[in-house]
Amino acid sequence: MLWLIITLHYAYAIHRLFMNVILKCRMQTGNAVAAAHFLLQSAEAAFPKQKKSLVVTEFKQAKVAHKRRSKAHREEKGPSQLPQDVLVHIFCLLDLQSLISAGLVCRSWTLAANDNHLWELQYTIFFGRSNNSSRTKTQWSGKSVNKDYTFWEENVITRTDIDWKETFKRAYG
Protein backbone atom coordinates (compact mmCIF):
# COMPACT_ATOMS: atom_id res chain seq x y z
CA MET A 1 0.00 0.00 0.00
CA LEU A 2 2.75 2.37 1.01
CA TRP A 3 4.54 1.46 -2.19
CA LEU A 4 1.43 2.40 -4.22
CA ILE A 5 1.16 5.80 -2.53
CA ILE A 6 4.81 6.51 -3.16
CA THR A 7 4.41 5.54 -6.83
CA LEU A 8 1.36 7.78 -7.28
CA HIS A 9 3.12 10.63 -5.55
CA TYR A 10 6.11 10.13 -7.79
CA ALA A 11 3.91 10.07 -10.91
CA TYR A 12 2.20 13.29 -9.87
CA ALA A 13 5.52 15.04 -9.27
CA ILE A 14 6.75 13.94 -12.69
CA HIS A 15 3.53 15.12 -14.27
CA ARG A 16 4.00 18.60 -12.82
CA LEU A 17 7.64 18.72 -13.80
CA PHE A 18 6.82 17.50 -17.25
CA MET A 19 4.14 20.11 -17.81
CA ASN A 20 6.61 22.73 -16.70
CA VAL A 21 9.06 21.47 -19.26
CA ILE A 22 6.46 21.62 -22.03
CA LEU A 23 5.55 25.12 -20.98
CA LYS A 24 9.20 26.09 -21.02
CA CYS A 25 9.61 24.64 -24.49
CA ARG A 26 6.67 26.66 -25.66
CA MET A 27 8.24 29.74 -24.14
CA GLN A 28 11.28 29.33 -26.38
CA THR A 29 13.77 28.41 -23.70
CA GLY A 30 14.91 25.41 -25.71
CA ASN A 31 17.69 24.42 -23.29
CA ALA A 32 15.22 22.26 -21.38
CA VAL A 33 15.12 19.74 -24.23
CA ALA A 34 17.72 17.41 -22.75
CA ALA A 35 15.91 17.37 -19.41
CA ALA A 36 12.64 16.81 -21.23
CA HIS A 37 14.04 13.70 -22.86
CA PHE A 38 14.81 12.19 -19.51
CA LEU A 39 11.39 13.17 -18.16
CA LEU A 40 9.69 11.72 -21.22
CA GLN A 41 11.17 8.36 -20.41
CA SER A 42 10.02 8.62 -16.81
CA ALA A 43 6.58 9.76 -17.92
CA GLU A 44 6.22 6.85 -20.30
CA ALA A 45 6.75 4.57 -17.36
CA ALA A 46 4.47 6.39 -14.90
CA PHE A 47 1.42 7.72 -16.78
CA PRO A 48 -1.69 5.75 -17.74
CA LYS A 49 -1.66 4.74 -21.38
CA GLN A 50 -4.09 7.35 -22.75
CA LYS A 51 -2.56 10.28 -20.96
CA LYS A 52 0.87 9.03 -21.90
CA SER A 53 0.16 9.23 -25.62
CA LEU A 54 -1.20 12.75 -25.12
CA VAL A 55 1.89 14.02 -23.36
CA VAL A 56 4.18 12.23 -25.79
CA THR A 57 2.43 14.02 -28.68
CA GLU A 58 2.64 17.33 -26.84
CA PHE A 59 6.29 16.77 -26.20
CA LYS A 60 7.04 15.89 -29.81
CA GLN A 61 5.23 18.97 -31.06
CA ALA A 62 7.11 21.15 -28.60
CA LYS A 63 10.36 19.62 -29.77
CA VAL A 64 9.65 20.20 -33.48
CA ALA A 65 8.71 23.80 -32.70
CA HIS A 66 11.93 24.20 -30.75
CA LYS A 67 13.97 22.80 -33.63
CA ARG A 68 12.35 25.20 -36.09
CA ARG A 69 12.99 28.12 -33.79
CA SER A 70 16.62 27.25 -33.20
CA LYS A 71 17.13 26.74 -36.94
CA ALA A 72 15.65 30.15 -37.70
CA HIS A 73 17.83 31.58 -34.96
CA ARG A 74 20.96 30.00 -36.45
CA GLU A 75 20.22 31.36 -39.90
CA GLU A 76 19.71 34.76 -38.36
CA LYS A 77 22.96 34.62 -36.45
CA GLY A 78 25.24 32.93 -38.99
CA PRO A 79 27.69 34.97 -41.05
CA SER A 80 25.78 36.84 -43.73
CA GLN A 81 26.63 35.71 -47.23
CA LEU A 82 26.68 38.15 -50.07
CA PRO A 83 24.44 37.25 -53.02
CA GLN A 84 26.05 36.13 -56.29
CA ASP A 85 25.37 39.32 -58.26
CA VAL A 86 27.00 41.45 -55.54
CA LEU A 87 30.00 39.11 -55.38
CA VAL A 88 30.44 39.32 -59.16
CA HIS A 89 30.27 43.10 -58.92
CA ILE A 90 32.95 43.15 -56.20
CA PHE A 91 35.13 40.69 -58.11
CA CYS A 92 35.07 42.87 -61.22
CA LEU A 93 36.98 45.44 -59.15
CA LEU A 94 39.79 42.97 -58.44
CA ASP A 95 43.05 42.33 -60.23
CA LEU A 96 43.80 38.86 -61.58
CA GLN A 97 45.65 37.44 -58.56
CA SER A 98 43.07 38.72 -56.11
CA LEU A 99 40.25 37.36 -58.27
CA ILE A 100 41.81 33.92 -58.26
CA SER A 101 42.36 34.03 -54.48
CA ALA A 102 38.75 35.10 -53.95
CA GLY A 103 37.68 32.14 -56.08
CA LEU A 104 39.26 29.75 -53.57
CA VAL A 105 37.54 31.10 -50.46
CA CYS A 106 34.42 28.91 -50.51
CA ARG A 107 31.99 27.33 -52.97
CA SER A 108 29.76 30.37 -53.28
CA TRP A 109 32.75 32.64 -54.00
CA THR A 110 34.14 30.11 -56.51
CA LEU A 111 30.88 30.20 -58.41
CA ALA A 112 30.93 34.01 -58.56
CA ALA A 113 34.64 34.16 -59.46
CA ASN A 114 34.04 31.85 -62.44
CA ASP A 115 31.54 34.25 -63.96
CA ASN A 116 32.28 34.34 -67.68
CA HIS A 117 32.05 38.12 -67.91
CA LEU A 118 34.67 38.61 -65.20
CA TRP A 119 37.13 36.72 -67.36
CA GLU A 120 36.13 38.63 -70.45
CA LEU A 121 36.91 41.76 -68.45
CA GLN A 122 40.30 40.37 -67.36
CA TYR A 123 41.02 39.50 -70.98
CA THR A 124 40.15 43.04 -72.04
CA ILE A 125 42.38 44.53 -69.33
CA PHE A 126 45.37 42.36 -70.24
CA PHE A 127 45.11 42.03 -73.98
CA GLY A 128 42.91 44.90 -75.11
CA ARG A 129 39.70 44.77 -77.07
CA SER A 130 41.01 44.17 -80.52
CA ASN A 131 42.89 41.11 -81.72
CA ASN A 132 45.38 43.45 -83.38
CA SER A 133 46.34 45.28 -80.19
CA SER A 134 49.72 44.58 -78.63
CA ARG A 135 49.92 41.79 -76.09
CA THR A 136 51.70 43.74 -73.39
CA LYS A 137 50.11 43.55 -69.96
CA THR A 138 48.40 46.77 -69.04
CA GLN A 139 48.64 48.22 -65.58
CA TRP A 140 45.34 48.00 -63.79
CA SER A 141 44.05 50.54 -61.35
CA GLY A 142 40.58 50.86 -59.84
CA LYS A 143 39.58 53.55 -62.29
CA SER A 144 40.55 51.75 -65.47
CA VAL A 145 38.78 48.61 -64.27
CA ASN A 146 35.64 50.62 -63.70
CA LYS A 147 35.82 52.07 -67.18
CA ASP A 148 36.27 48.68 -68.73
CA TYR A 149 33.52 47.26 -66.63
CA THR A 150 31.12 49.78 -68.14
CA PHE A 151 32.38 48.85 -71.58
CA TRP A 152 31.88 45.22 -70.75
CA GLU A 153 28.34 45.82 -69.44
CA GLU A 154 27.40 47.37 -72.76
CA ASN A 155 28.81 44.52 -74.79
CA VAL A 156 27.73 41.50 -72.82
CA ILE A 157 25.15 40.19 -75.22
CA THR A 158 27.36 39.80 -78.23
CA ARG A 159 30.03 37.44 -76.91
CA THR A 160 28.55 35.07 -74.37
CA ASP A 161 29.37 31.94 -76.37
CA ILE A 162 33.10 32.19 -75.59
CA ASP A 163 34.65 30.54 -72.52
CA TRP A 164 36.62 33.61 -71.46
CA LYS A 165 38.47 31.95 -68.62
CA GLU A 166 39.91 29.35 -71.00
CA THR A 167 40.63 32.03 -73.58
CA PHE A 168 42.37 34.16 -70.97
CA LYS A 169 44.42 31.23 -69.68
CA ARG A 170 45.63 30.33 -73.17
CA ALA A 171 46.54 33.93 -73.97
CA TYR A 172 48.20 34.48 -70.56
CA GLY A 173 50.27 31.29 -70.52
Binding site: P79, H89, I90, L93, S101, A102, L104, V105, C106, W109
Partner: peptide, 24 residues
Protein backbone atom coordinates in the same frame (compact mmCIF):
# COMPACT_ATOMS: atom_id res chain seq x y z
CA UNK B 1 31.59 47.10 -53.13
CA UNK B 2 34.76 49.05 -53.87
CA UNK B 3 35.37 49.08 -50.10
CA UNK B 4 35.12 45.27 -49.93
CA UNK B 5 37.27 44.86 -53.05
CA UNK B 6 39.98 47.04 -51.48
CA UNK B 7 39.93 44.84 -48.37
CA UNK B 8 40.30 41.66 -50.42
CA UNK B 9 42.97 42.87 -52.84
CA UNK B 10 46.33 41.07 -52.64
CA UNK B 11 45.29 39.00 -49.63
CA UNK B 12 45.72 35.27 -49.22
CA UNK B 13 42.70 32.95 -49.28
CA UNK B 14 43.09 32.16 -45.58
CA UNK B 15 43.27 35.83 -44.71
CA UNK B 16 40.05 36.62 -46.60
CA UNK B 17 38.25 33.73 -44.91
CA UNK B 18 39.34 34.82 -41.47
CA UNK B 19 38.71 38.49 -42.20
CA UNK B 20 35.14 37.89 -43.35
CA UNK B 21 34.35 34.97 -41.05
CA UNK B 22 33.67 32.69 -44.01
CA UNK B 23 33.70 28.97 -43.38
CA UNK B 24 35.85 26.95 -45.77
Amino acid sequence: NQGVADRIKNKSVEYVRRFFGIEN
